[in-house]
Amino acid sequence: MDDAEVMIGPVNLAARVDEALAVQALAFGLDEDEIAVRRHIVLRHLLCRGARAYGATTPDGALVGFVYGMPNDRTHWWSTVVEPYLRATGTADWLDDSFVITELHVHPGHQGRGLGRELITTITDTAAEPRSILSAIDTESPARGLYRSLGYTDLARQVHFPSAARPYAVMGAPLPLKRRN
């Protein structure tokens, strides 16, 4: 499949949650139990104020990537977990007036071709907030390289989420995100 034919646009993620989670499972290595838990989380997130999603869809309608996010809310679980780490690095103010990228995943067969970049820049271009935050596994990876190329920098590292085996980094970037020259 030529990724030039893949279209990026708004997606009804609630209606396509199982298809999106199948992509996430392949990209992130989730088992059936983790998928079931994440399904409820995604559907709950989509009810939050300002939540929106974009998908990467092939001409035959298959979802090969997605991103979703929302204006950050300090009362949400993610913010309550990362706040002490950000406070320790003097960056807790990033939790205010930020658009959080909740999930970004591209099917492994379509990775490395710019779809993740297009998904994240498309969704953040719709944000009214002046900056964006996200968390990513705290290891050198193509995802972290992508985020750095877009202007994200580490705000806190070695962030431990309950039930996550590996530590995460919280990253932030001013909006709009950097574009390739």
Score class of each variant (00 low, 15 high):
Ala4Met: 12
Glu5Ala: 15
Ile8Pro: 02
Gly9Arg: 11
Arg16Gly: 01
Ala20Lys: 05
Ala20Trp: 06
Val23Cys: 01
Val23Lys: 01
Ala25Phe: 12
Leu26Pro: 00
Asp31Ile: 10
Glu32Pro: 04
Glu32Trp: 09
Ile35Lys: 10
Ile41Ser: 05
Val42Tyr: 13
Leu43Pro: 07
Leu47Gly: 11
Leu47Ser: 13
Ala51Leu: 07
Ala51Ser: 13
Arg52Gln: 12
Arg52Trp: 04
Gly55Trp: 05
Gly65Asn: 08
Phe66Arg: 05
Asn72Cys: 10
Arg74Ser: 10
Ser79His: 07
Val81Lys: 06
Pro84Thr: 08
Tyr85Thr: 00
Thr89Gly: 05
Ala92Leu: 00
Ala92Arg: 06
Asp93Cys: 05
Asp97Trp: 09
Asp97Gly: 02
Phe99Met: 00
Ile101His: 02
Leu104Asn: 06
Leu104Gly: 01
His105Leu: 04
Val106Asp: 02
Gly109Cys: 07
Gln111Val: 06
Gln111Pro: 03
Arg117Ala: 10
Thr122Phe: 10
Ile123Ser: 01
Ile123Met: 04
Thr124Asp: 02
Thr124Val: 10
Ala127His: 03
Ala128Leu: 14
Ser132Met: 03
Ser132Trp: 02
Glu140Ile: 14
Pro142Ile: 11
Arg144Thr: 14
Arg144Ala: 12
Arg148Thr: 14
Ser149Leu: 08
Ser149Arg: 14
Tyr152Val: 11
Thr153Gln: 13
Arg157Ala: 13
Arg157Ile: 12
Gln158Val: 09
Val159His: 08
Ser163Arg: 12
Leu175Glu: 08
Pro176Ser: 04
Arg179Lys: 15
Arg180Gln: 12
